[in-house]
């Protein structure tokens, strides 16, 4: 028997969880069905959307001179929720990744990261254009 708080909505139901087998649990204390879905996913296959940044490289010297603003980091995220146990490995991968500018929002930087089927994508466009 374990306890957890449902985070699906602000009500924050206190859930009691009974493990039936390796792959089965029973949930009580939830005021709606989303509580059960949340508890099952969180206990059996916990996932998180991972957001971090990568080093930005390749900004042309001219572009840097034209704009006072030269971004050093490119924000990235997993295109979908990512298995929690593989997050440390993914962060290492992202920390060592260099992204050559320009980059477009949504551009896939790593396809099928660590064999999960989930891509790592850029979350902003950096165009190196003239400042407004």
């Amino acid at each position: 028997m374990s306890e957890m708080i449902c985070i699906t909505c602000p009500l924050g139901c206190h859930l009691s969880i009974q493990r039936i087998s390796e792959t089965e649990i029973s949930v009580t204390g939830n005021r709606c069905s989303r509580g059960e879905t949340y508890a099952k996913e969180e206990l059996l296959f916990p996932k998180r959307v991972v957001t971090t940044t990568c080093r930005a490289v390749g900004l042309p010297a001219g572009a840097q001179a034209a704009s006072l603003y030269a971004p050093r980091r490119v924000p990235v995220r997993t295109a979908d929720a990512f298995p929690k146990e593989k997050i440390p490995e993914l962060l290492k991968l992202a920390a060592n990744l260099e992204v050559t500018l320009p980059v477009r929002r949504g551009e896939v930087l790593v396809r099928d990261a660590l064999g999960t089927g989930i891509d790592l994508v850029a979350t902003r466009t950096i165009s190196c254009g003239e400042p407004s």
Partner: peptide
């Protein structure tokens, strides 16, 4: 705000801050 969770009402999807802003 590079983390996720923006835009559920405005764009009907979960975006990071830069995505929402752009």
């Amino acid at each position: 705000c590079i983390h996720n969770g923006f835009g559920l009402i405005e764009f009907n999807e979960e975006l990071s801050g830069p995505e929402f802003a752009q």
